[in-house]
Amino acid sequence: MLVRELSVPGALEFTPVQYDDDRGVFLEWFREDEFSKATGHSLHLAQANCSVSRAGTLRGIHFAELPPSQAKLVTCVHGAALDVVVDLRVGSPTFGRWDAVTLDDDDRRAVYLPVGVGHAFMALADETVVNYLCSEPYSPGREHAIHPLDPAIGIEWPATARDGTDLSPLLSPKDDAAPTLAEVRARGVLASYESCLAFSRGELAP
């Protein structure tokens, strides 16, 4: 398994080794030993999610308050998606910046999102299936969203689908009504960079 650090500190891309023959393909998309070696800590698995999306569906930017926030390991098992991580940790050297990885059923990469960062993705094909391993269960009172088209963040969302057709962002009413990064920061719900690092090291109680 190959590991690459994204430009948002703590966010990682995992590219598995695939074994294919005339029957199909086999791969290990998560290994605890490889994950712990790359991150310095284990992944506490509390919830597994699956979403199925039509081309153009744009989900996010979502994040959860710290503690305990919610770390995620995300992969695409069918179709394709542009997966985006946004640094929302106040005091981080890359606060407000984003990075992206194309997740698809060819390379079968996975992305790790540490606590305190935001997550969003756009489906690039119909019936795109994205799976998430989450470190904490969904907690409605601690979940927040930032508008994925916030120009201050400036995510470059694809305009073309996997098959070459035009894409238009399709947002849920909740995501379409989400505030900007500046508005969310003013509300005081963003965690500090140092507290996120301390939590990941087990130094901050949930």
Rank of each mutant, 00 (worst) to 15 (best):
E183S: 09
L73P: 00
L204T: 02
A125F: 06
V74C: 02
E34G: 09
K72N: 01
A177C: 10
G202F: 11
V101G: 08
L113Q: 11
V189E: 05
F95D: 00
G24C: 06
W98P: 01
P68V: 03
T15L: 15
F63L: 14
R142N: 14
A191R: 06
L6A: 02
P67N: 08
R89L: 04
D166L: 11
Y193T: 01
R162Q: 14
A182V: 09
L73V: 11
E183Y: 03
S192K: 02
D175R: 03
D175C: 10
F14E: 04
D33H: 04
L82H: 02
T15W: 00
I155D: 06
S192N: 01
V86K: 09
V184L: 15
S195I: 13
I61G: 02
Y112N: 00
A178E: 12
R187L: 12
E156T: 09
A125E: 15
L73Q: 01
F35P: 01
A159H: 08
F26M: 13
E32P: 00
A64T: 15
S135N: 04
H62M: 12
A123M: 13
L197R: 13
V90W: 03
V8G: 04
T75R: 15
L149Q: 15
T102I: 13
R54K: 15
E203T: 01
P68S: 09
L2P: 00
R31W: 11
C134D: 03
L197G: 00
D22N: 12
A191P: 04
V8S: 05
A182P: 02
S200L: 13
T15A: 15
V101Q: 05
K72F: 00
N49H: 05
R108G: 02
V130E: 04
L12C: 04
T128Y: 08
G96C: 11
S168D: 10
P68N: 03
V189L: 09
R59D: 07
T75K: 12
P169R: 05
F26W: 13
T39D: 00
E203W: 02
W157S: 07
R31T: 13
P140H: 07
F35N: 01
P137A: 11
V90N: 03
H41A: 03
Q18M: 14
T94P: 07
A64C: 13
G118L: 05
D20I: 05
R23W: 05
F199G: 00
V117I: 12
G141C: 07
A81S: 13
I153D: 06
V17F: 06
S92D: 07
F35D: 00
H78W: 10
V52N: 10
G24L: 10
D87P: 02
V115H: 11
A48Q: 13
D83F: 07
F35T: 01
V101F: 07
A177E: 15
G141N: 09
T165R: 14
E127L: 13
A205I: 05
S195C: 01
A55D: 06
G164V: 10
D107E: 15
V86A: 07
V25Q: 14
A159Q: 12
L190V: 13
E127P: 01
P9D: 05
R23C: 08
E127W: 14
P158G: 11
P206G: 02
H44F: 10
T75Y: 10
P148C: 12
